[in-house]
Design a protein around this nucleic acid. Structure first.
Length: 141
DNA sequence: GCCAACGTTGGC
DNA sequence: GCCAACGTTGGC
């Protein structure tokens, strides 16, 4: 953990783009986000920020981590120019996935923004939440 | 597959 | 500029 760094959580449906796909690709442009609040978070991402990779709809678990390897730029897939993308590269695969259920049951995670705005595909994570989730996964990061 | 949540669009 | 209709997301 590094105090100069911010932490985030991104959601992806594994049938569309899974953590395994990111590992195979080595890096990916995180584009297609069309929500104003999520775009604010994307703009706040800095090089080296760390990201929890969550599988929505199917696994309902955090399965790995990723690193911001390019800061926000105009989303090439957005004709209006209003939205931005970042580049993510794979970090670590978690030893054990951390399920949504387990996160909801952990009082230390009760204030996570992903619970309050469940449809946001990009949300901030506090350093403490990051530490707790990584501990739950039995991973050393 | 259903549907609640909620952001966006467009007619007025 | 309101708000009903519509579309999308994602937990269940």
């Amino acid at each position: 953990m590094d105090a100069t760094r911010s932490y985030w959580l991104v959601k992806s449906e594994p049938s569309k783009y899974s953590f395994g796909d990111l590992v195979l690709d080595g890096r990916t442009i995180w584009d297609g986000v069309r929500n104003a609040q999520a775009a604010i978070y994307l703009r706040a991402m800095r090089l080296g920020d760390e990201v929890l990779y969550y599988h929505s709809r199917e696994d309902l678990s955090v399965v790995g981590t990723a690193i911001v390897t390019r800061e926000s730029f105009t989303d090439p897939s957005d004709a209006t120019g209003r939205f931005v993308a970042v580049e993510l590269s794979p970090g670590e695969s978690l030893n054990q996935p951390v399920s949504l259920r387990a996160m909801k049951e952990n009082p230390a995670l009760a204030d996570m923004i992903m619970f309050r705005q469940f449809r946001l595909s990009v949300t901030p994570v506090t350093a403490e939440e990051w530490r707790v989730i990584l501990a739950m996964s039995n991973s050393e990061v």
